[in-house]
């Protein structure tokens, strides 16, 4: 991280672009860092759901990154994890209320996964690994890059599963577009009810989720290999940025939060 601060001083613009692009490909949170697997598998039954989830998570990520970075000198390191959790949970709840009010259809299809953005390890992971140590602008850009990367990966999954599993693409787009005042477009049906093929429903069920993710991961690994980078690995909890926090928490660093939780 010291390297990043140095870079920021040298050529701020260039490094900001780097912070942004690293989240897209080389450090894509889903495909490379293998974070946030639960929503990746659960909400990608259609591209509209995937987009909704990705954008919601991105908003939370950018906002919490900004706030955490702005408060990084105020928050004592002892209570930083509970403080991060409170900040993230507030933004998640705000996003949840906004979605409920303006895109109720999305709220219904994302269900419990909307509040569960709180425990999405991408967000806490970025707070701990980046926003807690870097200036506000860099953190915001980092959050944006990671968010876009996450959304992109989700949309890939969603597109594959929707086309093969339901025979449609962008189905339910009207619920998202209606915020922008566009109506009348509700996706295309690629495989109709009376056509020769019928969609492979299994792809939008649970097994199809795992399968699509596995195949996409294999493709991502292949691309990484070509560039001479190591494969994505989920080495137990060591790959998760939480592992370090967990170890710290285990030493009793978060004792204070109990009082706050009750308060």
């Amino acid at each position: 991280m010291a390297k990043q601060t140095k870079l920021a001083k040298n050529s701020e613009k260039k490094s900001l672009r780097k912070e942004f692009t690293k989240g897209l490909i080389s450090e894509n949170p889903t495909m490379r860092l293998v974070l946030g697997t639960c929503p990746t598998l659960a909400v990608t039954t259609s591209i509209v759901n995937a987009l909704g989830m990705g954008v919601s998570a991105m908003i939370v990520l950018v906002c919490s990154n900004i706030v955490i970075s702005a408060l990084r000198k105020v928050i004592p390191s002892k209570v930083r994890i509970p403080a991060y959790i409170v900040i993230i949970a507030s933004f998640v709840t705000i996003v949840q209320m906004i979605v409920k009010a303006f895109v109720p259809a999305l709220d219904k299809s994302l269900g419990v996964f909307l509040p569960l953005i709180v425990v999405n390890c991408i967000i806490l992971g970025r707070a701990e690994a980046f926003a807690g140590k870097n200036p506000v602008l860099a953190s915001a850009v980092d959050g944006l890059g990671m968010g876009v990367g996450f959304t992109f990966a989700l949309c890939c999954m969603g597109a594959i599963r929707e086309v093969i599993g339901a025979g449609t693409i962008f189905a339910g787009a009207e619920s998202l577009l209606s915020i922008a005042g566009i109506t009348g477009f509700d996706g295309f049906t690629l495989i109709g009810e009376n056509s020769l093929f019928s969609p492979m429903t299994i792809f939008i069920l649970a097994p199809g989720g795992f399968f699509t993710f596995g195949i996409l991961m294999a493709c991502a690994n292949k691309l990484a290999e070509r560039k001479g980078k190591p494969k994505a690995e989920l080495g137990g909890c060591s790959a998760c940025p939480m592992a370090k926090n967990c170890a710290l928490l285990a030493k009793g660093e978060g004792c204070e939060e109990k009082e706050e939780a009750e308060a």
Binding site: V34, I202, L205, A206, P207, G208, G209, F210, F211, F213, G214, I215, M217, A218, N221, K222, K231, A232, E233, L234
Partner: peptide, 21 residues
């Protein structure tokens, strides 16, 4: 080779989840 590591684990998970269906 291209499935080694995480991809094959995910595909195995897919088959286990299929059996749970």
């Amino acid at each position: 080779k291209f499935l080694q590591g995480l991809p094959i684990v995910l595909i195995a998970a897919s088959i286990v989840s299929l059996s749970f269906m």
